[in-house]
Structure formats: structure tokens, C-alpha cells
Design a protein around this nucleic acid. Structure first.
Lengths: 220, 220
DNA sequence: TAGATTGTTAATCGATTAACAATC
DNA sequence: TAGATTGTTAATCGATTAACAATC
């Protein structure tokens, strides 16, 4: 995966065409923390507070942000609402984005009822399952639909992300269906290694990998 | 978060005392992919194949591995079983590690019944919930216990990781209980910003953040 | 004013990659 | 042998951080 050159411009320079992967990942992380901080009633945050929560060095946080404008106030910090708005603008992810969810088991139901996506402008607008006895049943305010409905749903509901909350052996088949329907981002909660065309992005959830990593630094 | 110096030694030099965070994260990722590849029946993999699955440059994969020994065979690739064993040894995470799970809702049940942790040597050995009507009910082969049992369970069952699958407003209280019980690694599926002592590691699951990030590169 | 925190510079350090000899 | 792929070097590039003047 090539990282496009881009590095933040000096003061006053135009914003870069495309963020580096590192910067984009950190901005998304700041957004998560800011969203939560806002919910807890904070009005301003300092780069030091953000550093505590994100484990990103405070100098780097200031550097990441100052590449796009002077969002902070010296001696005070950053206004939470304003910073959220700015980061959303930088990431161009302000608008609502629709998600199709596959799998109406425990995991699928947990995702559908969670606000973890909703807080960031993602909305689960359709849920699919292959088990005939689940089709037609309710999950929150949605009704479980057959996978054959997918192509129509993608067009009608402007679905840009497919989330797979299904067993390993069902994941590749559904990924193929999603690709055929034109979905370009797949979020995979199974452990299957998905084969997709290069223009499609697969993100595989890996809690165990994250744990292995945390455990290493705990053990050493 | 300071990154200790370490960089891989030349051939024949002793392994470094402590891996850099980047290397440790990538090794854990290789392990995930290798585990899945093994399940799918592959006996050898090339650095190029690993690169396709992990999106890590193949030169870097060879470099990461060659710092610890000559695990591959020129013209052939790496033996999957042997490489899994080597990486486990490097990460010192071969042994079984016990997990306590909090929350017996949809998410907790999904985690308890998943093999996503089990594949990497993690075992959910206790499940807790605060709702009186859930205590005593069965989740897989486990029985839901009251949170007051935690301290005893940590001692008796050698629990090293606590997983929070609970609502945001319950997360901090449980984190405090885990810290008091001596657990040093917390895996947080809620969106709460947890305050813990510096020696405790919190990893917050952030699917929405990952999606924002994927979406940025899709939109630009 | 005094204290705090940003925005920015300059230097360092580690990650990344192309290229290729070694060798299976 | 011919083809493939590792192990390793050398060069580059981006990330990281300490430090501090600016300023709220």
C-alpha cells in the first residue's frame, strides 16, 4: 500500500490533496475521543488532554491540527464542537453514510442496536440474513431481509459500506455479492481472509490481534 | 507513549530486548493471517502472499521476520506451522491467557461464543453481569456471575484481561473494579473514555473510527 | 501580570522500499 | 538448469519529539 506524499503544509499554505494514512487514522481517533468528551459535557480540550486519551504525543496532535488552520486558543485549548466540525470537514465525512449489515445473530443484533456507528454519521439501513426463519423478523426498527434483496437495496438506499457479522464460511460469498452490487468498503467481523478486487477496501476486525499486542507489552 | 529503541539486529545478533510497537503490531497481524491460512489448508506462504492479505509491503515482512532468524526457504516461502510457532515465541504469547467478560447482552454472548479469541490462545473463563435476572443464566458452558465475584475469580482463574461489553455508563465503574482486582489489560467495547492508572492498558474497540478512515480513502 | 497552552522550528530517529546477490 | 523467493544492503522518506517564542 503506497503512501502518497503529502505532509502538512506550512502556515497559510493550502491543505494537502490527500492525507497520509497516519494522519487520517489519528484524526479519526481524535474525533472519537472528542465525540465522547462532548457527551461528557466538556467544552474545551487541550492537546495534553487529548494526548492522555489517545496516547498520541501532544506535540504531534498540535502539529496534525495546525496543518489545517489555527483551531486552538493559546492558554485555553481547543473548542470541542468547533474541532469536531473541523475534523469532519478535513475527513470529508460529515454526511450520513448508509450501512448494510449481514447476519442477524447475536453480533448483528449488538451492532444494529449500538450507537457506536450512529455517533459518527453511519446508519444501519438494512439487515440481511440467509436463514429463512430469520427473514421477516424484526431487529430494532429494521426487518431482516433475504440476501437477494441486496442489489436493489444498494441502489435505493445508497449503501456505501457492508458489514459482515457472519460465520467465517459465509463471509467470502457475501463479500462477492457486495462487490457485485458495487459496494466498495467491507467491514469484516469474521476471521475469513477475503479476496476482493483492488478497488474494494476490506477492514477486518481483530480484537484478538489487538490483545496479543497489548499482552506483549504487559509481559515484557 | 515513548517507543523504546530496538530495531532488528543484523544476522546472528541476539534478539532485541523489546520490540517496537510497529513490529509487535505487524507480527500480531501476521499471526492472525497465518492462523486463518492454516485453517484453509495452506502449508507454505510467501512474503508476497502475506503482503496481499495484510497490506504490508513484502520487503518489510521479510525484514521483520529475518531480524529473528532465517525462517524461510528461498524459492519456496515460509512454512505456515513453523512461522506461527516462531511468531508466538517472539511475542511470548504461546500460553493460554484467561479473560473475564462483562456484559451478558447480545455483544457479550457474541464474544463468548466466538472463536476469535480462542484461536489465539485466549479463553473466556468467566462472565459477569450486574442485572439480577441474568445472574445464574447460562452463556455457552459458562454461568453468568455477579460482579462481586470478580476479585475471587481473578485469583482463582488467573485472569489477565477484562473485556467490557457493557453500556457506556457502566464501563468506568467496571474498569475501577478490574483495576482494584489487579487486572492490567482492559479491552473496552463501549465508547466511554476510561480513566485508569498508568500501568493499566486500555484498548478501545473503534469500528466507526476504522470506517471513517476507510471512507476517507474511498472518497478521495 | 502570571500562568497556560498553542503553533512552529529544527533535529533526530525509525520505517519504508527498491534492488539484488544468495540459494532453494 | 531455470524460476522463484528469501535475506540484506543502502538510500530515502516520513514520523516523532524537545524546545520555545507567541499569545490568549
Amino acid at each position: 500500500m503506497s503512501v502518497p506524499d503529502l505532509i502538512g503544509p506550512g502556515a497559510g499554505a493550502p491543505a494537502p490533496e490527500r492525507l497520509s494514512m497516519g494522519v487520517a487514522a489519528r484524526l479519526a481517533r481524535y474525533l472519537q475521543v472528542l465525540t465522547q468528551a462532548k457527551r461528557e459535557g466538556k467544552e474545551t480540550v487541550s492537546s495534553q488532554e487529548l494526548s492522555t486519551w489517545t496516547k498520541v504525543n501532544s506535540t504531534q496532535i498540535r502539529r496534525d491540527l495546525s496543518g489545517f488552520g489555527k483551531f486552538g486558543k493559546r492558554g485555553v485549548g481547543y473548542n470541542v464542537d468547533a474541532l469536531v466540525a473541523q475534523i469532519r470537514k478535513i475527513l470529508r465525512t460529515a454526511g450520513p453514510h448508509n450501512i448494510a449489515l449481514f447476519g442477524a445473530g447475536h453480533l448483528g443484533r449488538a451492532i444494529a442496536s449500538s450507537d457506536i456507528f450512529a455517533d459518527h454519521g453511519f446508519s444501519v439501513v438494512a439487515i440481511f440474513d440467509s436463514a429463512p426463519d430469520k427473514i421477516g423478523s424484526a431487529v430494532g426498527h429494521l426487518t431482516v431481509r433475504p440476501v437477494s434483496d441486496l442489489a436493489a437495496a444498494v441502489d435505493e438506499e445508497d449503501i456505501v459500506v457492508g458489514v459482515l457479522a457472519v460465520p467465517n464460511n459465509a463471509a467470502q460469498g457475501l463479500a462477492d455479492v457486495l462487490v457485485d452490487a458495487g459496494v466498495k468498503i467491507i467491514f469484516n467481523y469474521s476471521e475469513a481472509l477475503l479476496q476482493v478486487p483492488p478497488e474494494v477496501t476490506v477492514h477486518t476486525s481483530s480484537p484478538a490481534v489487538d490483545l496479543l499486542y497489548a499482552l506483549y507489552f504487559y509481559l515484557t
